[in-house]
Design a protein around this nucleic acid. Structure first.
Length: 120
DNA sequence: TTTCTAACA
DNA sequence: TGTTAGCA
């Protein structure tokens, strides 16, 4: 599919789709006319990328771990260097921290909402 | 009409 | 990330 369709299906601006490619997160093929050609699996991949970006992971980290999280498009995931494993552990820990932070804020908001309703 | 690259009141 | 210019 071309960039327009992928953009609609992933709700992602074409500008960002090209940016992800520039960052080495996705590598679409090219047609004779120079248009990018995206495979079906890129739909999931783009959503995965956006999810990781939302959590705060920088593109440089995503570029390294994407091959391991990418089920459908998986080609090879052999070399799991100690460095990469350490990197993944750090990122996972950061996610745990974020999750804990989000949970606190969520609970605080819930408590606030209940308090307001109890009064009014 | 759609996509492409490059660049910025 | 947005937006725009000038092509193909």
């Amino acid at each position: 599919m071309r960039i327009g369709e992928l953009s609609r299906r992933t709700d992602t601006p074409t500008r960002l789709l090209r940016y992800y490619e520039e960052q080495g997160l996705i590598t679409p093929a090219r047609r004779d006319n120079g248009y990018r050609d995206y495979g079906e699996c890129l739909v999931d991949r783009v959503q995965q990328i956006r999810g990781l970006l939302d959590v705060g992971l920088p593109t440089r980290v995503i570029r390294q771990i994407l091959p391991f999280l990418d089920r459908p498009c998986t080609i090879l995931f052999s070399d799991a260097t100690p460095e990469l494993l350490a990197l993944l552990e750090r990122e996972r820990d950061r996610m745990d921290e974020r999750i804990a932070c989000l949970a606190r804020n969520r609970d605080a908001i819930t408590a606030y909402l209940e308090a307001v309703r109890a009064e009014g």
